[in-house]
Structures are given as C-alpha cells and as structure tokens.
C-alpha cells in the first residue's frame, strides 16, 4: 500500500480507504432545533471494527453517500408504488389464470410451439431447396443447346465402302460404311504393332460402321478418307496414316482418331 501511494503521485489522496459522510440535499426548513434530550446510542465498549459498526454507533444525518476505493456508491429506493402491467392479452388461454397450475397444459403448449417451429422449418427447407436447384440448373446447358448437340444420320443412304463427313459440334464427323474385307483386315491387326493399342471391336459397336471424329490427333487437321498406306485416312498436313478403324499406324500423330458416343436406332445413328 505504501509503495502504491508512493507511485501513484497526484492520486494518492484518493487512494486512501476513507469514507466521507455527505449531507443529504434536503435541508430542514427550521434549522437549528437541537434536541439535547435524545442521547445518541453510543456504546463505547463496542469494538470498533468496520464501517458498519461505525455507522451503527454514530448516526450521521438523514441521507448519506459514501465513496470509497472498495466499490461504487449507490442509493437504492424502494419502488412499492409501481403497478404491475396486465399481461393477460399476451398469455395463452391455458395459463390465463395465474392461480392455476400451468403444469397440466405444459406438454400441449410446448408441442404447439414445436409444431409451429417444425412447419416453418419444413417450408423454409422446401423454398431453400428450390432456390438452390434453380441456381444450379441455370448453370447447365439449356435445352436448345442440348438439342443442337445431337445429330441423326440416316445409314441406308451411305453405300458400302463410302465415307461420309458431317458437321457435328463444329467438328467433322466421319461415318464409314466398311466392306467385309476391311472388317476382316482390321480385326486381324496385331495389337503389338500399334502405337495406341486398341482392338477394332473396342472402337465400333457394329463392325460395318466406323464412327470417328475427323480431327487428326497430331495438330488438328482433317484427314482425307480412303487414302494413305493403310487404306483408311491420311492427314495431308504432316503425313499421318490411319487405318480403316481410325487407328494411327504411321506418322507423327500420337493417338487414334477419337470415337464419340453414339447409338443406333433402327436405320439411324444418333451421335451425341
């Protein structure tokens, strides 16, 4: 305490634990009447211990405020004249009577609250799910784009041994009606001599029809059909030779011609 007083400097008078009695603001109109007959009950034998015992010994005016380091001073008034508002309009009918026990209707009231919560949550979840679904589905391709992404080709108009080129998704699409000789030849190719080993039957759904994307896997030129050393396709840009199954056999291209997804529906082939 001494060191604290020494260090606090200018504040040291305020840091001492002393209480000051403050006279009340209300002053009697007729002052100076001192009743000497009333003896102040002062018990000098009583041990002087705390502030409470001090104030018990010495009465000091009608209103007093104390200020000390131990805590804030406060004056508390008793509000016995304030009327409690009537909350009857806000109460549920089960608890309108305040003298009745609220316990029997407890579960009913709680279940009503939970029912309201549950129904609100269900409705919110439904709305949220639909909003999210709308946003996510707006990112996917629209129906007109999806409709353009497919192509139908009539196969009966393609004679045997002919290669037809159609435009599909901005790229050339080869549809080749293979002869039995070509089918036989491609089926017997040894996989070990291929750069991108793939059996002919893994590249076609029906052996008569080879459906390929006509983009050279080297640098993207369009190969020429029925040309080259292997009787399939020949890329004029850098001299890649493909066979009748679209597999790379010679030249700089690293991979076989790509096979798109397609399916046969009666006389048609649907690519995409």
């Amino acid at each position: 305490m001494l060191s604290l007083v020494a260090r606090s400097g200018a504040f040291s008078p305020y840091l001492s634990a002393t209480s000051y009695a403050v006279a009340g603001q209300l002053k009697p109109l007729a002052s100076g009447v001192v009743l000497h007959s009333d003896k102040v009950p002062l018990d000098v034998k009583r041990p002087f211990l705390t502030r409470e015992t001090l104030s018990g010994q010495a009465a000091s005016g009608p209103l007093s405020a104390t200020a000390g380091i131990s805590g804030p001073s406060s004056i508390r008034f008793l509000h016995s004249d304030v009327t409690v508002p009537d909350f009857a309009d806000y109460r549920r009918p089960e608890v309108a009577n305040s003298t009745k026990s609220s316990r029997p209707s407890d579960e009913y009231r709680k279940s009503f609250s939970y029912l309201v919560t549950g129904v609100t949550t269900v409705a919110t979840a439904y709305v949220a799910k639909n909003v999210v679904t709308q946003f996510v589905s707006s990112m996917s391709a629209s129906a007109d784009v999806l409709a353009l992404s497919k192509i139908e080709v009539k196969l009966s108009e393609i004679p045997e041994g002919k290669n037809v080129c159609v435009k599909w998704r901005g790229k050339p699409l080869f549809i080749r009606h293979r002869t039995p000789g070509e089918i036989e030849k491609e089926a017997q190719v040894d996989l070990s001599e291929l750069r991108d080993p793939q059996h002919d039957l893994d590249r076609v759904k029906k052996p008569e029809w080879a459906i390929l994307i006509g983009v050279c896997t080297h640098l993207g030129c369009v190969p020429i059909a029925n040309a080259g050393d292997y009787g399939g396709y020949y890329c004029p840009c850098h001299g890649s030779h493909y066979d009748a199954s679209g597999r790379i056999r010679k030249g700089p291209a690293p991979l076989n011609l790509e096979v798109p997804y397609y399916e046969f529906v009666e006389d048609l082939v649907i690519v995409g």
């Binding site: 579960e107 939970y114 979840a125 439904y126």
Partner: peptide
Amino acid sequence: MSLLNTVYRSVFRRTSTFALSIVLGVVLFE
C-alpha cells in the same frame, strides 16, 4: 390436446427425432 401431447412425447422431445421428422416432412411435403 391429447394427440399433441403424444406427438410431443414421441417426436418433439428429442432433438434427433425432431430433426428427423422435419427431414421426412420436407420429403413428403415437397
């Protein structure tokens, strides 16, 4: 009242069953 009491005791009292009932309710409601 008695029906709601039964529902409260069997469904709403536990958070797990309450949440489950909401999920099922959403599926059926949708």
